[in-house]
Simulated scan of single mutants.
Amino acid sequence: MQRVVHEFTEFFSAKLKEYQDRGEFPINSCMELRITGIDDPGEVDMEGAVTPSLSGIAPVPGRPELDTAVWLDVLTLPGTPGQEKFFQELEHFIGLELTRYGVARPEWAKRFAHTERGAWTDEYQLKELIPSLVPGWDHARATFHKYDPHRIFTAPLHDAMGI
C-alpha cells in the first residue's frame, strides 16, 4: 500500500511539473487517495451475501493476499485544456507500473478509459481490459440483458463496453 501511494504521488507530482513547465495546467482540482478493504462477502453479517457484480474492489480470484484497495482520484473542471492527455498518461502509468502490486480497476462513478478524444473512448480498455479484470463481468452483463431486454435503460457507455 505504501509503495503504491508513494509511486503514484511521485509520478503525479512530476507529471504536473512537466505540464506546468510547458505552461499547461490540465488538473485544477484535488487529488484524493483513499484506502479501504475489499468487498468480502464473508464480512457481511447476512447469509448468502455475494460480491457486487461490477465491484471495483471485488476480491481477486486466486489472490487472497490482495485484501486492500487504494483509490486514486484526480479531479479537474470539465473542458480544462489538456486534461484528456493527462488522464491518458495517468491511466497508462497505473496500468503499467502500479499493477506490479495488484490489480487496477476503474471506479465506475468516475471517468476512465481515456484517449485524447476524452473519457470512455479507449476501446481496448472498454471492451477487453476492463471486462477481463472484473470477476463478475459476465454475470452483470447477463443480468442487464435479463432485466432490460429491450435496452430501455441502456446508456451509450453500456453499448461502448459491450454490456
Rank of each mutant, 00 (worst) to 15 (best):
A69F: 15
L77I: 12
T68F: 14
M46E: 10
G79Q: 15
P59C: 04
P52M: 04
T76G: 12
E65A: 13
S29K: 11
E32N: 00
G48N: 05
I38A: 11
D67G: 11
D67V: 07
M31G: 00
R63N: 05
L75E: 12
D40M: 03
L54I: 11
L54S: 04
L72E: 15
C30G: 00
P41M: 03
T68I: 15
A58M: 09
D67R: 10
V60G: 06
Q83E: 09
L72M: 15
T76S: 15
A69R: 12
L33P: 01
E65N: 10
L75G: 11
T76M: 13
T80H: 11
E47M: 09
M31D: 00
Q83D: 12
R63F: 05
W71G: 15
S55A: 15
V44D: 02
D40W: 02
T80K: 07
E47N: 08
V44G: 05
D39G: 05
G62T: 13
P81Q: 07
V50I: 09
T36E: 02
S29H: 13
P64H: 06
P61E: 12
P41L: 04
T80R: 14
S53Y: 14
G79W: 14
P41Y: 04
S53H: 13
P64R: 11
A58D: 11
L66C: 12
D73I: 10
D73Y: 01
R63Q: 14
C30F: 00
T68M: 12
Q83N: 08
I38N: 06
P52R: 01
V50A: 10
V70Q: 10
A69I: 07
A58P: 04
M31V: 00
I35F: 01
E43M: 09
D40R: 03
M31E: 00
G37F: 01
P59N: 12
M46N: 06
I57K: 14
L75W: 10
L77G: 09
S53G: 09
D45K: 08
E32P: 04
A49T: 02
E43K: 10
P64L: 06
L77K: 15
E43S: 07
R34S: 01
A69N: 14
L66D: 03
C30S: 00
E47I: 12
P59Q: 14
M31A: 00
S29V: 06
W71A: 13
S55N: 13
T68R: 15
L33S: 02
T36G: 02
L54V: 10
V44F: 05
E32H: 00
T51I: 08
T76R: 03
S53D: 14
E47S: 12
P59V: 14
G42K: 11
P52V: 09
G82I: 06
D40C: 02
T51Y: 03
L77V: 13
S55Q: 09
P61I: 12
D73C: 09
E47P: 07
S55I: 08
I35C: 02
A49D: 07
L72I: 15
T80W: 14
L77C: 11
D67Q: 08
I57Y: 01
Q83H: 10
R34V: 02
P59D: 10
T80C: 08
D67Y: 04
V50E: 10
D39P: 03
T76Y: 05
G79N: 15
T36R: 06
V70F: 07
E65C: 07
R34F: 03
A49E: 06
D39L: 05
A58Q: 07
L75M: 13
V74I: 15
I38V: 14
G48P: 01
T36N: 03
T80V: 09
P61G: 11
Q83V: 03
